[in-house]
Computed example of a mutant assay.
Amino acid sequence: MKSEILVLGSTGSIGYAFTENLLSKNIPVTIIVRDVAKAKNLFQSFNHVEIIKGDVQDLNLLKQVATDKKYIFHGINYPYNEWFGNMDVVTNKIIEAANLNKAMIVFPGNVYNYGNTPLIKEDSSENPCTRKGALRVEIEKTLRDAANAGKCKVLNVCLPDFWGPNVLNEGIKPIFINALNGKAVPYSVRVDIPHQMVFTKDAAEIMVRLMQRGVQKPYENYNYGGQVHPTMKGLLNQISRLANAPKKITVYPKWLFSVLGIFMPVMKEVKEMLYLFDGTVLLDDSKVRSIFPDFKETPLYEAITETLNWFRESFKL
Score class of each variant (00 low, 15 high):
residue 265 P to V: 13
residue 214 G to A: 01
residue 261 G to M: 14
residue 186 P to T: 00
residue 294 D to R: 12
residue 68 D to A: 00
residue 222 Y to F: 01
residue 264 M to V: 04
residue 48 H to I: 10
residue 153 K to L: 14
residue 206 I to S: 06
residue 210 L to K: 04
residue 126 E to G: 10
residue 128 P to I: 08
residue 179 A to W: 01
residue 117 T to N: 15
residue 265 P to G: 10
residue 165 P to Q: 10
residue 211 M to N: 15
residue 156 N to E: 04
residue 196 Q to K: 03
residue 177 I to K: 09
residue 137 V to E: 02
residue 47 N to C: 06
residue 58 D to F: 03
residue 303 A to F: 07
residue 311 F to V: 15
residue 127 N to P: 00
residue 82 E to Q: 09
residue 119 L to H: 07
residue 15 G to A: 03
residue 82 E to R: 14
residue 197 M to A: 08
residue 218 P to V: 12
residue 195 H to N: 15
residue 27 I to R: 14
residue 281 V to D: 07
residue 316 K to Y: 10
residue 219 Y to T: 00
residue 308 L to C: 06
residue 242 L to Q: 08
residue 87 M to L: 10
residue 285 D to P: 00
residue 49 V to I: 13
residue 31 I to D: 05
residue 6 L to N: 10
residue 160 P to F: 08
residue 89 V to I: 08
residue 100 L to C: 12
residue 92 N to K: 13
residue 71 Y to L: 14
residue 303 A to C: 07
residue 283 L to C: 04
residue 218 P to Y: 10
residue 313 E to Y: 08
residue 116 N to C: 04
residue 283 L to T: 05
residue 84 F to P: 03
residue 49 V to L: 13
residue 195 H to C: 15
residue 45 S to M: 11
residue 101 N to V: 06
residue 274 L to F: 15
residue 103 A to N: 03
residue 104 M to A: 00
residue 209 R to A: 06
residue 144 R to T: 08
residue 63 K to H: 10
residue 21 N to C: 14
residue 2 K to H: 14
residue 29 V to W: 07
residue 85 G to I: 13
residue 178 N to L: 09
residue 96 E to L: 03
residue 254 K to W: 15
residue 134 A to T: 03
residue 84 F to R: 03
residue 277 F to Y: 06
residue 118 P to T: 11
residue 122 E to C: 01
residue 134 A to D: 06
residue 271 K to Q: 14
residue 157 V to R: 02
residue 122 E to S: 00
residue 214 G to T: 04
residue 293 P to T: 13
residue 37 A to T: 06
residue 300 L to Q: 09
residue 310 W to I: 01
residue 25 K to V: 10
residue 40 K to I: 01
residue 170 E to I: 13
residue 123 D to W: 09
residue 251 V to G: 02
residue 52 I to F: 07
residue 31 I to K: 12
residue 185 V to L: 13
residue 133 G to W: 07
residue 176 F to G: 00
residue 256 L to H: 12
residue 170 E to C: 14
residue 177 I to A: 07
residue 69 K to R: 07
residue 99 N to W: 03
residue 21 N to T: 06
residue 206 I to V: 05
residue 138 E to Q: 02
residue 29 V to H: 11
residue 285 D to L: 02
residue 146 A to H: 07
residue 49 V to C: 11
residue 93 K to C: 00
residue 131 R to S: 03
residue 144 R to W: 11
residue 315 F to K: 10
residue 264 M to G: 04
